[in-house]
Amino acid sequence: MASTQRTHPIVFNPVPAPLAEDAPSLRLLSYNIQAGIATSQYRDYVFHGWKHVLPSADRIRNLDHIAGLLRQFDIVGLQETDDGSLRSHFLNQTEYLSLRSGLPHWSSRLNRDLGHWGQHALGLLARTQPLNIEKHPLPGRIPGRGVLLADFAWQGQSLRIIVSHLSLSQRARRQQLTRLIELCAEHPGPKIVMADFNCTPDNADLQKLCNQANLKLPADSPDTYPNWRPNRAIDHILVSPEIVIESVEALRFGVSDHAPLAMQIALTPPDSPHLQANAS
């Protein structure tokens, strides 16, 4: 019996006011959008596989649906976007989502250039302008993984956001996580890593990233894959100890084979007893 697509109506809030640097909390989203392809069962990988290289009539409609979700957030990290190829109607999908969602500041990092057949990329959208943007490659036997990094002013501090998508191979993923540790170490302030890690929270290398980069996972990591019946937590948002995780949720949404991962956070004041207790 074919499984049904796991969706329910989404009620979109009006576009929130522009984010101020002293905003008390931030709404984050990390989402592997699968280049705007709707996937509702495993057999779609076979019967709809052509959508990964050729344009489809429903792709723009899917992107518009995603944009309606994104407008509820302040900072969004995207994986598996397309920078403009045949399959995406030669649209830069990150730019398109920026325009349609009302998140005015965007950047993308081309990870794998397949010419007209695919421009595999990472994307970052934000309600406030970043102070700095950097794009880095990640190691691996097969090139095509990278990091999109942005620094923002928030609560009087510089907040570093890192967006990435790691390899399926454990060996390559270990090398990539080591590089993420280095990029986190370069920044003394609060940090957030938003990625499709392709591994669960108990993975030893992911735990090493948390320990050596001084990051934490939520107490319970929501399952995000497969979107139609999630049973694996492989998409994660990691934050510094001084960041309070107010809520985290894998959203019910019918585009991509991954569920979007939403998190709301607040920043603990530097002199907070709670933060000092964690550091001791």
Rank of each mutant, 00 (worst) to 15 (best):
L124R: 10
R160L: 03
C184T: 14
A153S: 13
R171H: 14
L168E: 11
P139I: 01
L131C: 05
L166Q: 14
P137M: 04
P143S: 09
R127E: 00
S158R: 15
T178M: 10
F152D: 03
R171D: 09
S169G: 09
P143I: 01
I133A: 03
E182R: 14
E134D: 08
A121G: 11
C184N: 14
I142Q: 11
P139Q: 02
L177F: 14
Q170E: 15
S164M: 03
T128K: 06
L138V: 02
L148V: 06
A150N: 02
L149G: 04
S158W: 12
A126N: 07
L183I: 13
A153L: 08
P139Y: 02
I181E: 13
D151Y: 08
L125A: 08
A121L: 07
R127Y: 04
P130E: 00
A172L: 00
R141N: 05
A150P: 03
E182T: 12
A185W: 15
F152C: 01
Q155F: 07
L180P: 08
R179V: 12
R173K: 14
P139F: 03
A185M: 15
Q129L: 03
G156V: 03
A153G: 08
W154D: 00
Q129S: 04
P139D: 00
A172K: 00
T128M: 06
L122Y: 07
L183Q: 14
V147R: 07
T128V: 06
F152M: 03
H120T: 04
L122E: 03
P143L: 03
H136L: 04
W154G: 00
L183A: 07
R127D: 02
L177Y: 15
P130I: 00
R173F: 06
Q157M: 06
Q129A: 10
L183K: 09
P137F: 07
G140P: 01
L168A: 14
G118Y: 13
G123H: 10
A153W: 08
V147K: 04
G123I: 06
E182Y: 13
R173E: 04
L149E: 13
P143A: 09
Q170A: 14
W154T: 02
L168H: 15
P130G: 02
S167R: 09
G146F: 07
P139S: 01
H120Y: 15
L138H: 05
S164P: 06
L148G: 11
I161R: 05
